[in-house]
């Protein structure tokens, strides 16, 4: 597949990717497994699982796994640039118009509503990660420790991650030895 084709397919995917993590799998499956038969369903499931367990944006990871699989490093880059193409220009245009619209009370009302939805979505993200984790004493202690560092000691996210991942890996290593 030529790089330009790959880029264009991902431009299309970026344009219809509305709603985040939930829709990425069905969209990719439809495009690459069913329609084009370039990737096997099993492989896609692997990529999806890995994309969720790696750091970074899940949709971005997934995009790059597929791009890399189809066309190597350049494929990954083409896929990445493709998937952000439409969103990028949409944000730019919307940002320009939004400033003019924000004084409108309907727009303000709508943004207020979306703001509340975002709080709910963040809480749901916590629930999802929570449910997908093995929760033993280890999980609860790291969770509480990190939360206290953030809320009470006001550590930054990166400081918190560095401190607690070192603690976590040490604890896991000691446990493995024991």
């Amino acid at each position: 597949m030529p790089l330009l084709r790959l880029f264009l397919i991902f431009v299309k995917i970026g344009a219809i990717l509305l709603g985040g993590g939930y829709v990425i799998f069905p969209i990719m499956s439809n495009e690459f497994v069913e329609k084009r038969q370039l990737i096997k369903q099993d492989e896609l499931v692997d990529y999806f699982a890995l994309s969720q367990s790696l750091p970074g944006i899940i949709a971005a990871n997934m995009t790059m796994f597929i791009g890399y699989k189809l066309k190597g490093k350049l494929g990954a880059i083409a896929a990445m640039l493709g998937v952000i193409f439409v969103p990028f220009w949409t944000i730019l245009i919307l940002a320009a118009v939004l400033n003019a619209l924000v004084s409108n009370s309907c727009v303000q009302g709508g943004l207020w509503g979306v703001g509340i939805a975002v709080i709910a979505l963040i809480m749901l993200t916590v629930r999802e990660v929570w449910q997908k984790s093995k929760r033993g004493i280890f999980f609860y202690i790291i969770f509480l420790g990190a939360l206290i560092s953030l809320l009470i000691f006001k550590l930054t996210p990166v400081q918190t991650i560095l401190i607690f991942s070192v603690i976590g890996i040490l604890v896991k290593s000691i446990r493995r030895q024991a």
Binding site: V126, I142, P157, F164, G168, I169
Partner: peptide, 16 residues
């Protein structure tokens, strides 16, 4: 080990 540790940390970040 890193991934298992990142999960509770991520929950804490989002909760905060």
């Amino acid at each position: 080990a890193m991934i298992e540790t990142l999960k509770p940390i991520s929950c804490a970040l989002l909760t905060s």
